[in-house]
Design a protein around this nucleic acid. Structure first.
Lengths: 208, 208, 208, 208
DNA sequence: GATGAATGAGATTTCATTCAT
DNA sequence: AATGAATGAAATCTCATTCAT
């Protein structure tokens, strides 16, 4: 059996085990067994547990961003782009729960190298959302512009909300990607719209 | 030295080590050493690594919910309650990064018993937020009511956004709890307000 | 059982196994079994295979130099000091063949850290012999002095001859430490004496 | 490429790796790679790691003895034969450090089969030196003859001194084969000469 | 003649956990 | 109440060796 095929089988198995058990609790024995190969072969192809985990992160991150990118058509309006992207995001995470667990849970809890790996992907998504918010602001002729730091915070909040809803949708039976996306669009787009019209929420004055 | 004090010292050490290394990478040796006691004593008081971790989760969850509860005054308006709660949340997570790491990262990545433990706390917070959304709907005389499933999704999204902002605020120097809360209120309250006024975002029709 | 005692038992076992099998072929399992303890205890006390081997080298080197030093009385003539030292050397290596194997064979074949460790001991012995040669030269009123580089080479040769004879004596039944020492003294002291009297061996001229 | 050539390339690589890493630390992978062939080919030609190491020992031993033998002309005086042999020995070991490491260090530290292999070569050299000592005794008309056991010990000591000086000369920059040979001749030949004239070193009487 | 693919066995090391005192 | 001493079990990783082609 050619090497490339075997390697994908190993990554499949590794994503499943890492996603369910976590990085440290996963054992190379178990991964090799699930992949249907011997342990030395895993080491021959993937070098070490750390490299194997990194390879999983990269593959799953690439798959997720590819799915989102494929769904978004740059010519459309900002809200339509966001809607399409969100649906693709929720659909992909629902279809690949172990991959999503690797990216969202496992990779972020096990030390710098992995955190950096997944942070790169997340930064890409946050940048995409930030771009959409800016486009929306332009479309709404907002004046003056939103401060940059504020935009970053908003994008961060939106992405966090999406991540959280992905887990919730997966755990709540009968919740489709379409519904999750609708909920988030209702929540976010109206909020953004209000912001664009200058309707900010003013915090109460601090007591002396 | 009385037992209760020793036990708290052990939990302090355990939260620090678990929060920084993760559940599996943390060693009982290191925890005992940091607590300044011998390992058998840790076992005498806390039984096992699993029990010790569970005790950590419970203590940190109780501390976080207590901090939020103490900040919220039931008599005030819904937005004021949410604002006060968010500020308390961001302040507490910023002040107890290891405890927050245990709750938000570690406990959710290491198997059922711990996931269930932290899910209970999260459910409590989501219920609190859900109550606030319902109150807001009543205050806005919204008619007809938002469907229950939709409210749950909104609360979930809001909590997720808050969790995400907590991590972002901790990682971005110069971002205070007050700023994080303001950003989130701007994002969320305006969105909720629009929703209350019936301004929903309508998804495009599916292609046949 | 107190720690110090157990540690010596482990070193005894380790010297035996290392001496017979070599550093790499020796397994920690075998050493632990011979010492009558579990493997983790060996690691608890001695840290690692490398540290354990280093500890063996140090202990055996200290024992050998102590034996030689104890036998030499500084007040006596140079030839008497050499004779006493050699007898102690041959006796000790005959009594501790595994220790001698560790020092002479194993430590010198397994990488820098160990080579350096045993080189320190050897340097001490070579220095002692060099001192004796210098004393002998003074006693013989040799004039002019032997060049320094030449003295170093002589000491090196003498120590090498002794090391070689130690192995030979151990492998040849019926050869006592006294006999080995006599052979070497006959060989070396006469040679030194001739040198002192200026009877050098002159190499033939090189052909052009 | 003809088999004999390939085999020599493999042995070249093996001697280098064995000489630098030691028998156990050397991996067949590395040897095959350095030889520029695949691992199965090494097994096809040389059978096993043990056989490969044995082949290395035999080749290097043959090369060393051949070099010495080629330098010695039987018709000359005993001291001239010794001098020529020593110079060839020091030159060869300096030119082939990995081969010398295999013979002098590695082969003697890794169990019976290899020890026996190299002992055979050493015995040949000792026999050659023994013959020279006997010739020298005849030339000096010594009477009575040196006891056989004593001659064996002297030859052993001389060979050991040479081995030791070889390592010393290699490690001391600026020391040529000629210088090492001169040092050893001065040390040894004068000693032998004295012995031949009956000037033995008499050990002190044992105390009761 | 030559190799890519594959593995059984065993190496060092770590860790949660328990006695005896 | 507290601990020094000790271990069974399992982790990652390496290596000599063999097929099928």
């Amino acid at each position: 059996m050619p090497r490339a095929v075997r390697e994908q089988q190993m990554l499949d198995a590794a994503v499943r085990i890492f996603g369910q058990r976590g990085y440290m609790a996963a054992s190379m024995d178990e991964i090799a067994e699930l992949a249907g190969v011997s342990k030395p072969l895993v080491y021959l192809y993937l070098n070490s547990k750390e490299d194997l985990f990194t390879a999983c992160i990269r593959r799953e991150a690439a798959a997720l961003t590819a799915a989102v990118r494929a769904a978004v058509r740059p010519g459309l309006t900002a809200d339509r782009q966001l809607w399409d992207g969100l649906r693709a995001f929720f659909a992909h995470t629902a279809d690949h729960p172990d991959g999503w667990s690797v990216l969202h849970l496992q990779a972020r809890t096990h030390g710098e190298p992995f955190v950096a790996e997944v942070a790169a992907m997340r930064a890409e998504i946050v940048a995409f959302v930030t771009r959409l918010v800016a486009v929306a602001a332009r479309e709404a002729h907002r004046d003056p512009d939103l401060p940059e730091h504020e935009v970053a915070g908003l994008a961060e909040a939106l992405v966090g909300a999406a991540e959280s809803l992905a887990a919730w949708a997966n755990a709540t039976p009968g919740t489709t990607a379409r519904q999750a996306a609708t909920t988030l669009m209702n929540f976010a787009w109206a909020g953004l719209g209000s912001l664009m019209r200058g309707q900010v929420w003013t915090p109460p004055a601090e007591p002396a």
